[in-house]
Amino acid sequence: MHYLNIIYFIVRESVIYIWRNKTITFLSIAVTSFSLFVIAFFLATVENINVFIERVTQEISVNIFLADTVTPVQRQYIEKLLKSSDYVHSYEYIAKDKALNDFLRAMPNFESIVANLKENPIPSSYRVILKEKYNSENAIKNFIKIFVEAEGIEEIQYDRQWFEKLISFINIIKFGAIIIGAVLVFTALFTIANVIRLVVYGRKDEIEILRLVGASSYYIKGPFILEGVLQGMTAGVISLLALYGAYKILMHYIIASQAAGAVQLLVFLSSDMQISVVLTGVLIGFIGSFFSVSHLLVEQQ
């Protein structure tokens, strides 16, 4: 019964304080939300970079371009090599017509030029996706050696080199983002902690009075901590909603600009990360108010 009384007291005091001090509560939540938005934005950036790297790595392919003179027997032999190779995850035969259609879909401006050509200039090919473990440059080179003796092949191309350059560039950006992000996160946490501290210090007299009338520390700390937790949680949810809004607006502009590839690449925070942002708000609210009140109580003793 006594514990129920304490819980009821803490909840009631917190709700009454929040209700009666809407301006302070609003300002505190606003600052915390903005800071958490910065953290969420940073997490979303890192997550998008990771997703981009993952997708790019998965899409590394080896293109085996066939000569126009390739015979069905030669093609069968090439397919046999592909089927029996341990390197191959999957492969796809792209006929000349399909290759031309794909090209025109990607580059519609070339349609008139292509229409004037007597022959389809694009060769048929095999697009081979290697197993993830064979995505290194050496492995790709070894894979290509399999086709040294095969006839009917005009050229074998692979885009590993380009991707590796891209990935090392992205990694530099990622490293920079982590450093900037860490500074932003630290600043955000520092801001939130100070806002809580200011709010708690603004109620210094209240804490002193409660102590003098014989309130135990849980009666004094409880409402402050619960307020901190509720405000942190609310700010976490608001920051996510704001980020989602920003994500939707960005997607709208990307779709409008017809950059279809970018639509696929841009992802919102994963549910784990969303929970982490809200929990960060809750945790900062808890720690900030707990230490501020405890510090004040020690100061007043």
Binding site: E206, E208, L212, V213, G214, S216, S217
Partner: peptide, 28 residues
């Protein structure tokens, strides 16, 4: 805290909780 609950104190500067009603100030 337990010790202070046996003592009633009227302070020179009242020490009332300005954000609470009169009822709440006394009921606390």
């Amino acid at each position: 805290p337990d010790f202070r609950r046996n003592i009633g104190f009227v302070f020179q500067d009242f020490k009332l909780l300005n954000r609470k009603t009169i009822y709440e100030n006394v009921a606390i």
